[in-house]
């Protein structure tokens, strides 16, 4: 709730009836970024009620849409505040706003501004014209990296459920006794699962353009394969145990498919995947991940029985 701004008309600086009207969402960060992008300028800011959600997402959902814009223009009495009839909208509100409908219903012409608020001064100074570069949505290393914590939080819940199960099974299996087995097999399971999470939710997003393939699952699978190969090569503890080769084989299955699954889920955070594409990818990727996961877990469990 603290991420919301009250919808309505705000004055930035000392705007007069000629000042431009900039429209944004009532997600606090959207509002703040807009304000901070144009210091020292006079403008009206019309904040729409998007339920505290940012521009692009709200536009996709329809809350940053034609209806709300027309309603908010009327409710704010904008026609009495400014003499011109132009609204400047962020380009990424396009999926929700039909410019020609807004004009028909409110009398205001929609001008789509740049995607990034930091381009606003240049856009403004050019007479409210955006360059081609301003109109392109990027997905830079920096933009991908800030999403990593979000992905990690998403996996936390599952890790808390799955990791204790590995500890428990590790203790019950093998002939080293409960506590020793738990330490021996469970500890490595934790390390292996964490490396799968790092591969799929940290390394794949960051190294996205350099990983092979177009499907996210494939990129994540390759990253997981590399990670599991490294882990199995470097981990020599318990090498002489009878279940060791089977156990390592299990992780060569589990780590890549977990990584592939997590990478697949990163499609939701990316800025260029289509729903049709994601559906197509999932048609082969999900069965593949399930098969690999089941095979890996069976191998791991059977490795505990080998004495």
């Amino acid at each position: 709730m603290h991420y919301m701004v009250d919808p309505g008309l705000y004055a930035l600086g000392n705007p007069d009836d000629q000042a431009p009207v900039l429209v944004t969402a009532n997600y606090k960060m959207s509002f703040d970024r807009l304000r901070e992008a144009i210091p020292g300028r006079n403008a009206w800011i019309l904040v729409l009620d998007t339920k505290g959600i940012n521009v692009w997402c709200a536009a996709g959902k329809g809350t940053f849409g034609t209806e709300e814009l027309v309603r908010r223009v009327a409710a704010s009495g904008l026609t009495q505040v400014v003499t011109h009839r132009e609204l400047i909208l962020p380009q990424l509100s396009g999926p929700g706003v039909a410019a020609h409908e807004v004009r028909k219903r409110s009398g205001f012409t929609v001008i789509y501004g740049p995607i990034r608020s930091t381009d606003l001064p240049a856009f403004w100074d050019a007479g409210f014209k955006a360059t081609a570069v301003m109109r392109r949505k990027t997905f830079t290393m920096r933009e991908r990296t800030v999403l990593v914590p979000v992905e990690l939080v998403g996996t936390l819940k599952w890790s808390l459920v799955i990791l204790p199960l590995f500890f428990l099974a590790g203790g019950l299996g093998g002939d080293a006794g409960f506590w020793a087995g738990m330490l021996q097999n469970g500890l490595f399971a934790v390390i292996a699962m964490l490396s799968a999470v790092v591969a799929g939710a940290v390394l794949t997003p960051m190294l996205l353009p350099w990983l092979p393939g177009r499907a996210f699952s494939l990129k994540g699978f390759v990253m997981g394969l590399i990670t599991s190969a490294l882990l199995v090569t470097l981990w020599t503890r318990g090498f002489s145990e009878p279940g060791y080769p089977t156990r390592m084989m299990a992780w060569l299955f589990i780590i890549p498919v977990v990584s592939a699954y997590l990478a697949m889920n990163f499609t939701g955070a990316s800025t260029y995947t289509s729903l049709s594409g994601v559906r197509k990818e999932m048609k082969w990727a999900v069965p593949f991940q399930i098969a690999g996961g089941v095979a890996g877990v069976c191998l791991w469990l059977s490795s505990l029985l080998i004495t």
């Binding site: 960060m29 940012n54 997402c57 990424l92 997905f139 939080v153 998403g154 955070a269 800025t271």
Partner: peptide
């Protein structure tokens, strides 16, 4: 779900 922050910061590059 994954919490308020999770839901809002995905695709957050767009605000």
């Amino acid at each position: 779900g994954g919490g308020l922050k999770t839901s809002q910061s995905a695709r957050s590059g767009c605000c």
